[in-house]
Design a protein around this nucleic acid. Structure first.
Length: 554
RNA sequence: UGCCCGGUGGUGCAGCGGUAGCACAGGGGACUUUGAAUCCCCUGACCUAGGUUCGAGUCCUAGCCGGGCAGCCA
């Protein structure tokens, strides 16, 4: 799974390291706001920053950008840490919070005021917004812009001391109200907000804006390469302005395009709606592109890291096809998942000439990709279950499974020939298929070298267990629901289906939640957490590729 | 018609002035005790127009198209 391919950021880092006279360690960072769950798009950013630090012997910091207490919670801090660790990354002792820097940030603000580069504005929310101008018209200066340094310092101190009501005043940078870059039109640095912070409690009633916290937090931590998504590109001039004004360490910010995945949404707001409005069962619903959802679905962290590696890093807008993610998990599970007999939609097979009371045990390979994992015993008897789709009353051409008169191989067992079937006359449903077996083909080999085209899977009717199987499909029917205002209208109503009477081989009876395997000829499955002591529940992680199904659908 | 970024097969990513390549998807074949996996083959792309150059996907200019920015969100 080593597919390291370079990208413009990695190239830049290599250049920087080569050009640096003194050898320095690169320091990157992943700076989530603890206000939601991480998703596959975050994984891209995480793998980039942690991966680069790892590759070049540097360090990646995990820093929570917790500057807005009204939206942030400890629950999210915990889930974010869990997800990053699950992905296999280690921030070591470099766990930080922007809130750790509140004192320093306050001092920075004072310094800006003293350099006459920041001022307290008494105007209302609305007035400030109106004065900001528009995309095509310049803004106008606040009447409070030219207050004296002394007055600004005293006022800001009073803001901090809680002498003014929420929202009544803000601290603003004094830059340029006519700038084409709106971020430079005297951006707000601090606001008054009496909200209990998940870490600093009620110590503060003023909180720095993200734009005033982020760049300096990077600076304080000595970040060398600050990698973020494109929407912050316009903010870089502001960060540079503040850092230059303060005369502190200057990290280098480099932007890259965020990930879009086809047939799903990746915006926090929309993911949140899916959860709160009940379109999915929770943040870890197996259909969700969240890391907790993918984990429950059965995706391995290795497969997600590999995915993040092969999608690459660039600046252009992109939508990665979901099938690439599926390819990554298949690639992993193909070599690592033990094979098992599992019948999702069973139909009974009766072997008419099989000596009735007899049960015999046949050898089955655990994982053909890893022969060293050996074999197991499969109980075989007169009554079996096979997949309903493996029998056809009216077989299409090139169909080489079971139909009247045709011989197939039961994998690891015997050749059987279909001699008849039972049909419910009122419903038209096939209730059982009758076959004869050839005792000389035990194990699946014919002594006369006779060939059969089809090999199908099966379980003993008597010695198998009933399980539930949950199958998932893409959450949305359109490729880019995230680009659509009315994204809910394209929800796929068939994204989840549960089959209640599936059968799996008896050997699975004691397997635990999280166990992954391949149901031969079907797909990869994982035991879901909804499993009870009396009933196993399987999630289909991804189906096997199916060229037959593709063909008949043409 | 402010500022910023970007346009290479269906999708994603390379190509760093010298014959446009890789992966996924798609099509075909070989093999097969999983119609899987594996192997082989194929289809298919440089937004447009000028310019610089012996030579431009690459450099320059203009245009067109796509995206981002007007939270006391991050």
């Amino acid at each position: 799974m080593e597919n390291i391919q370079s990208n413009f950021i990695r190239d830049k880092i290599i250049t920087d390291m080569n050009e640096s006279s003194d050898s320095y360690k690169i320091i990157t960072r992943f700076p989530p706001e603890p206000n939601g769950y991480l998703h596959i798009g975050h994984a891209k950013a995480i793998c980039l920053s942690f991966g680069l630090a790892d590759e070049f012997g540097g360090q990646c910091h995990l820093r929570f950008d917790d500057t807005n207490p009204s939206k942030e919670e400890q629950e999210f801090v915990d889930s974010i840490k869990e997800d990053i660790q699950w992905l296999g990354w280690d921030w070591g002792s470099s766990l930080y919070y922007a809130s750790d820097y509140f004192d320093q940030l306050y001092d920075f603000a004072i310094k800006l005021i003293q350099k006459n580069l920041a001022y307290v504005d008494d105007q209302s929310h609305e007035t400030i917004r109106d004065q900001r101008g528009t995309l095509t018209e310049a803004g106008i200066n606040s009447p409070f812009r030219d207050r004296s340094i002394e007055e600004n310092e005293a006022l800001f101190q009073k803001m901090k001391n809680g002498e003014f009501p929420d929202g009544s005043r803000v601290l603003r940078a004094k830059i340029d109200m006519t700038s084409g870059n709106i971020n430079l039109r005297d951006p707000i640095l601090y606001r008054i907000m009496r909200s209990t912070h998940h870490r600093t409690g009620n110590n503060w009633c003023i909180y720095p804006m993200y734009d005033f916290a982020h760049g300096q937090s990077d600076s304080i931590e000595g970040i060398t390469h600050s990698l973020c998504t494109m929407e912050f590109e316009d903010h870089r001039p502001l960060y540079d302005w503040i850092i230059d004004a303060l005369g502190i360490h200057h990290p280098q910010q480099i932007e890259f395009a965020r990930l879009n995945l086809s047939h799903t949404v990746l915006s926090k707001r929309r993911l949140n709606r899916l959860v709160t409005e009940g379109y999915v069962t929770g943040w870890d619903d197996p259909r969700m592109p969240t890391l907790s959802g993918l984990r429950r679905r059965g995706y391995s962290s290795e497969s997600i890291r590999n995915f993040c590696e092969i999608i690459g890093i660039a600046k252009r807008q992109n939508t990665v096809d979901f099938s690439l993610l599926e390819h990554c998990i298949r690639e992993d599970l193909n070599v690592n998942a033990p094979r098992v007999m599992g019948i999702i939609d069973p139909i009974k097979v009766i072997i008419d000439n099989y000596p009735s009371p007899q049960i015999e045990y046949l050898d089955a390979v655990n994982n053909p990709m890893k022969p060293e994992l050996g074999t197991r015993k499969l109980p075989f008897g007169k009554e079996l279950y096979i997949e309903r789709s493996d029998f056809e009353e009216n077989p299409p051409s090139k169909y080489y499974r079971l139909y009247l008169g045709n011989e197939v191989r039961l994998r690891y067992a015997y050749f059987i020939t279909c001699v008849g079937f039972d049909k419910d006359d009122t419903t038209g449903e096939i209730t059982a298929v009758h076959c004869t077996y050839d005792p000389d083909t035990k194990g699946g080999n014919a002594p006369d070298d006779r060939k059969v085209k089809g090999t199908i899977h099966w379980v003993s009717a008597k010695e198998s267990i009933d399980v539930n199987v949950r199958k998932y499909d893409r959450l949305f029917n359109v490729e880019n629901p995230d680009f659509d205002d009315d994204f809910l209208s394209s929800l796929n109503p068939n994204s989840f289906i549960e089959i209640q009477n599936s059968k799996v081989e008896i050997n699975l009876k004691d397997e635990k939640i999280g166990f992954k395997c391949q149901f031969e000829r079907n797909g990869y499955f994982v035991i879901d957490k909804d499993t009870t002591s009396s009933r196993l529940v399987f999630n289909q992680i991804v189906a096997l590729r199916d060229s037959w199904n593709k063909k008949i659908n043409q």
